[in-house]
Design a protein around this nucleic acid. Structure first.
Lengths: 340, 340
DNA sequence: GTTTTACGAACAAACGTTTGCGCATACAAT
DNA sequence: ATTGTATGCGCAAACGTTTGTTCGTAAAAC
């Protein structure tokens, strides 16, 4: 009794068997026809003893851990921090707990994390895969682990995902630039093989081609500040600088700004900038960045919902969900089209 | 064998007892004089079977969960996201796992989280307490849970903490303003009863008084953007506006900027701004904000170290660690003192 | 007066580990 | 021969739950 009280202590003190106590505490009292009186007694002694069930024993017995894992490329990136925050709170509502793993945008780390976390008998996993490998994820799913990708995902697999409609987002951002008279546009992309990136490139190019723009470029290879910085530096070397840059993530945009500042290029007067991802800080940057805002909160909520319909109701059919993005006009795109 | 292999499967396949397998797998082979040959066999069958220990069974048996909890006020705040990230990776190095809880800066949530997470048989906890209550934390510690506060803490308790030297940080920021000729200075504080805030206020006032400045004010009551916004709005209403504002956190600073922008007050030309906390985005704000940078990474690393010296070596003596902050001069403070 | 039905609760096994002892065997020392 | 001492390994209990099955008893039905 000194240590944490267990179900046995309650049973002894209340004068009932362990079985009965367990059933009452698990809300299965009615199912097993346990009298109200008994329920009362057991409940109050549990209360009195300040009983907290030992999850390990429970999980060992049931095989369920009431735990899911969330793996993101980097918690330091506010975009993923928000995801972590939302997923965490959503999962709590089911009385489950979230284990957060950080792959540091490295596929080997991701695999290690997946393995490491698996030893915790996960009931499910939400992942923002960092690379273009999915074998380890498929294997996980084949073992029966409910799994869902968010933000980044893979096409043509039986792997559920929830993400933004990246094609449409990129298309509308590009259209927006074109409508503002830009005819020489560069986009700085992220990880090349990632589906969101591929979709964004497609949206970008379709918008260009559809509007008869021929002077466009696609460069870059990482969703990182460094990539944004380097590519912008290079773009500024060109004899004919683009009039607008489309950054494929907020991190890339940060890099762009750093480079533009260094080179003393005024935004939007000399070069316009538009970016994917919204975040509070974007409002405090000068100028506030016009962006394609992703419905992060909705993405997370839907993902959690799908995950739990898989965990709880064994609905294993893969779901492919794309959510509309939103163009948020701020002040980083100049209107070159004075006819308008 | 279809399902996850366990230690029994290995024992059968290798032709040894469960005991021996367990000992080999736990690196206690030598201690129990198990022959190299046997070790080899067991190791390779474990490998072959792709064995991953069931942490629940292990934890049930040992009473240790190899899990610690981290509770922060808000994961969405980049300051705490960074803490989460660093703590997470540091803890992993010990082969432990981190459960992250979000109190949403609400003391009731914090208590709930503490309770909820406790059922997971935590081996330790790191917390950024959100309020001025510590009873629930003391109780936790009395139950034998290794516990340590970071960033925010309480004085006069047997509760370990690692934080910045807030007094010195605030003092040097204030001194910096004074040295740049400011004589009318407002500071916008955070949660009033929190020790860091109290220390910062003290540092601020000591600097003011020490330099004979009489025209200073201390306002505000939360580490939030809203607080920064509202207080700045109010400050701007005064007939005699301060020439400099000292924001006590990056979130407060964001609010200040928002208000200053709205009122079209130029920083630093019309009002100078200095803030606590550094973060990458601060560099992209116009102007880049001069700030008191906290050694977040070091704080986390030291906290984790202390926590594990408690967990592993049962060193329960409370540790009180304050780390030096660093003044990072950027461009948001104007030098009014032309004599310099 | 016997059988049925409903009710209320308990037995005991199982989940996968770890670990304090104990048990052989073999060889050396007495 | 007996004792001593390494060496190499296994028995079985324990951790705290959950749960399929069983077991009384009392009231209801025949």
């Amino acid at each position: 009794m000194q240590q944490r009280p267990n179900i046995v202590d309650i049973a002894e003190k209340a004068g009932f068997s362990i079985t009965t106590v367990s059933r009452v505490l698990n809300g299965k009292a009615d199912k097993y026809r346990i009298s109200k009186a008994t329920q009362q007694v057991i409940m109050s002694t549990a209360e009195e003893l300040n009983y907290v069930p030992n999850e390990f024993a429970r999980n060992l017995r049931t095989g369920k851990s009431k735990t899911i894992a969330l793996i993101v490329p980097s918690l330091k990136n506010p975009f993923f921090a928000e995801i972590a925050s939302v997923v965490n709170t959503e999962v709590r509502k089911y009385n489950y707990i979230t284990l957060i793993g950080d792959s540091d945008d490295n596929i080997e780390n991701e695999k290690t994390e997946v393995l490491h976390l698996s030893s915790r008998n996960l009931d499910g996993m939400i992942i923002v895969p960092c690379g273009d490998e999915w074998g380890h994820l498929e294997r996980l799913q084949e073992k029966g682990l409910p799994l869902i990708c968010i933000d980044r995902y893979f096409e043509g697999l039986d792997l559920s995902f929830v993400s933004s409609d990246n094609y449409e987002g990129a298309y509308s951002a590009s259209k927006y630039l074109i409508e503002h008279g830009h005819t020489s546009i560069a986009c700085i992309q992220g990880v090349r093989h990632s589906t969101p990136n591929i979709q964004r490139v497609k949206g970008f190019i379709d918008a260009m081609v559809g509007s008869g723009i021929t002077s466009y470029t696609v460069t870059g290879d990482a969703f990182s500040e460094q990539n944004g910085y380097l590519e912008t530096k290079l773009l500024l070397q060109q004899k004919a600088r683009p009039t607008a840059i489309f950054a494929f993530s907020n991190t890339i945009a940060m890099g762009c700004i750093k480079a533009l500042k260094e080179e003393k290029v005024k935004v939007p007067d000399e070069i316009s900038l538009i970016t994917f991802d919204d975040n509070p800080y974007l409002n405090y940057i000068e100028p506030p960045l016009t962006c394609i805002s992703q419905p992060v909160e909705d993405i997370c909520k839907i993902a959690v919902k799908i995950l739990f319909s898989n965990i709880l109701e064994h609905d294993v059919s893969p779901k492919y969900v794309l959510l509309k993005t939103q163009l948020k006009v701020k002040a980083s795109v100049k209107n070159l089209d004075h006819v308008l």
